[in-house]
Amino acid sequence: MTALEIKDLNHYYVKGKNVLNDVNIELEDGEILSILGPSGCGKTTLLRIIAGLEKETSGSILMKDQIISDHFHTVLTENRDVGLVVQERALFPHLTIINNVMFGVSGSKTDRHSTAMRLLKLFRVDRYAYNYPNEISSGEQQRVAIARAMAPNPKILLMDEPFGTLDQSLTNQLRVETRKILKDNNITAIIVSHDFDDALSMSDKVIVIEDGTVIQSGSAKDITHISREKSVKFSSIKANT
């Protein structure tokens, strides 16, 4: 079944200066898609539009064959069933780790607690359940952030530069862990990154955006054949950040 379909999506803040041009994406259940591109290319805007945090100028978005946004309809973010992980992690600092993960889960307190604990165990941070976010490392915080986004069982998990602020060895470890958990749980996910390695090591599909336009799309294997020139360009961006 198609988890997400984006049709002819355009977006601008100032008329005549499009930040996204005719974007078309199709994503099957359980697939992981990476959206690659340099800073300012429009990839985060696209993710925010999918989450419903911004309204596209034109085009339509369907989730599980239901229209969630087009010219006539807009399903609010809180009703879209999406999970969001951001680079800053944005854990609620006044809540313990377990309460952060329980935050978006519905049901009885016991059920919410067991769901949260299961995820914390999955990400190997269950021993910090009753600590506050400022008491754990940034890598552990990122694990909690992903667990929290997965806890309400969203239709799609959206991740915006999820490993952007972590060191290389931790990033490598988290990529492997996260992909395994997503695949084991058959979770559809979109990862926005400017890092080729994120895309290649985690995704089934990759699209490359430049200046708001999709310039390349295909399987992760296909994209490895991307022109050497592009690769150098992206590497230099990565090195500069």
């Binding site: 989450a51 999970g83 951001v86 944005a90 959206l158």
Partner: peptide, 15 residues
């Protein structure tokens, strides 16, 4: 308060 906190809260059905 980082505005991304709001974004995440909204995806967690809190508005």
């Amino acid at each position: 308060i980082n505005s991304r906190v709001d974004d995440v809260a909204r995806t967690l059905k809190t508005s």
